[in-house]
Amino acid sequence: MLELRAITAGYDRRAPVVRDATLTVAPGESVGLLGPSGCGKSTLARVAALLHRPDAGTLLLDGAPVHRWRHRAPRELRTAVGVVFQQPRLSADPRLRLTDLIAEPLRATGRRAAVPVRMAELAETVGLTPDLLARRPHEVSDGQLQRACVARALVLRPRWLICDEMTAMLDASTTAALVGVVEDYRASTGAGLLAVGHDRTLLDRWCDRTADWETVTGRSCGGPGAGAPAGKAAS
């Protein structure tokens, strides 16, 4: 299980953007988390992905409470979670060729020997040709770079996947292709998925169930940057 229990998190302790969020993903389950822009979904996704320490609350991964985040998180936990973000340009090291970008988690965890086989499998899965794999991020399109980022997230065979607006930058065809890649991976490994986004049509089609921000946090979106309600009142 991936369990977020009463998580409070943000960038300023006095004004957290996530308050008291509770959400559970069972092994093999896919859960969509829906919420408006600026409500704090990405912040909660980063907590689940071990990238942002919450101010309060508990994250349990496969029954074990997580005590350390970011580079301090224990390796066996970090390798259990794969993450894909919205903006591939911000999450990809611009100096690395796509092939090294994808293989980097293998090297960082001392699995150099596995690189050739795993790379061959993944390149095929996400549809990247040898020509594209040899390029650096500025030499490929957003869609091609996101294909590489998905491959990177899968390279260590994580039990959990966190996709934060994975397809928000992408056209319809690339979206359908990459959702297909994630679902094929899950079908063959039984991995669980938390997919964060604001496209209800997409998440309903993609996931076993979808949860609204209000149900997860017990309140409607009212954090800083919650422009939608203010704007609605104005119009």
């Binding site: 319809a172 065809s173 359908a176 292709a177 049509t201 997409l202 309903d204 089609r205």
Partner: peptide, 18 residues
């Protein structure tokens, strides 16, 4: 036609290839 068919409220199938 392929682009529209890729939409999640339509067939949700990608256009093959890139």
């Amino acid at each position: 036609r392929g682009l529209l068919d890729a939409l999640p409220d339509r067939a949700f199938t990608p256009i093959p290839g890139m």
